[in-house]
């Protein structure tokens, strides 16, 4: 096993291709030597990576490896966690998002997030999608209406709910709820969407719908997704990052990670030997 993995020729090809594509497009998200602490616990131990626009990047790794923590850095959702502290730089669209004068609310309009468990507000379907616009102070009813409809259409929910937009978002099925949550995120028009295990609470059919949706959304958005499902990572992502114990073990094109991982740990994990 190890011999085939460390075939120097193949390794060279991999590295070249990374350099090539990264020259073409400036990174959407760039992190430099990121370290995160929760009180004394060192959750992230110095991670640098750059994520290109209009790609799907999957974060994989065993529970507690820091992938969710790392994801939540991009929209500063860790700010509320007690004892959280950060070292290093994260740039989104070239801007350091942890600088003092950064407006966190503005950042979150640019970097949307979908959570593990579908979490619609206890409001109507319409109000769920319109919420992000209303809190921005947008009062133009026509604009809100258009944005709600187009967001629901994008996630393929429009045909299913168009007759009862006044119904509570909580009355939908789990898969529909998750698509509603994605629509709610799209309505704010972010350019990056973070997804924290978005299908782990869903049945296979709903999961397939969400995966298809992610594939379509790639045209307009940069997507970073945390997943525990290896098949899902290999199906939907362009790049895969393998995390282990707060470190980034390997980050490469998904094809390479799954067919020809450079590190033994990566191979053991994706073949199900641990984790």
């Amino acid at each position: 096993m190890e011999i085939t993995m460390e075939n120097p020729k193949k390794k060279g090809v991999v590295l070249d291709s990374i350099v090539d594509t990264s020259l073409k497009k400036t990174p959407k998200i760039e992190t430099k030597n990121i370290k995160v602490w929760y009180e004394e616990f060192n959750a992230i131990k110095g991670i640098s990576m750059s994520i290109k626009p209009n790609t799907v990047t999957a974060f994989i790794g065993p529970s507690g490896c820091g992938k969710s923590t790392f994801l939540r850095l991009f929209n500063r959702m860790n700010d509320y966690v007690d004892g959280f502290s950060l070292e290093g730089k994260i740039k989104i669209n070239g801007q350091n998002i942890y600088k003092k004068n950064v407006n966190v609310e503005e950042l979150r309009k640019e970097v949307g997030m979908v959570f593990q468990k579908p979490n619609p507000f206890p409001k109507s379907i319409f109000d769920n999608v319109a919420y992000g616009l209303k809190i921005q102070g947008i009062k133009d009813k026509q604009l809100i209406n258009d944005r709600v409809i187009s967001s629901l259409k994008q996630v393929g929910l429009w045909e299913e709910v168009k007759d009862d937009l006044k119904k509570s978002g909580l009355a939908l099925s789990g898969g529909q709820q998750q698509r509603l949550c994605i629509a709610r995120t799209l309505a704010v028009e972010p350019s990056i969407i973070l997804m924290d295990e978005p299908t782990s609470a869903l049945d296979p059919i709903s999961t397939a719908k969400i995966e298809e949706l992610i594939f379509q959304l790639k045209q307009k958005y940069t997507i970073v997704i945390v997943t525990h499902n290896m098949q899902q990572a290999s199906r939907i992502s362009d790049y895969t990052a393998f995390f282990y114990l707060g470190e980034l073990i390997e980050f490469n094109k998904t094809k390479n990670i799954f067919t020809n991982p450079e590190k033994k740990q990566t191979e053991n994990y994706i073949t199900g030997r641990f984790g």
Partner: peptide
């Protein structure tokens, strides 16, 4: 639920907006 607050923050709501539009009604 924390998930409701998270959702509100993630959409760009400030703390006060989250309290006023989500926490107090709920």
């Amino acid at each position: 639920p924390q998930s409701i607050k998270d959702a509100s923050f993630a959409l760009g709501a400030s703390k006060w907006q989250t309290i006023w539009h989500q926490i107090l009604p709920a």
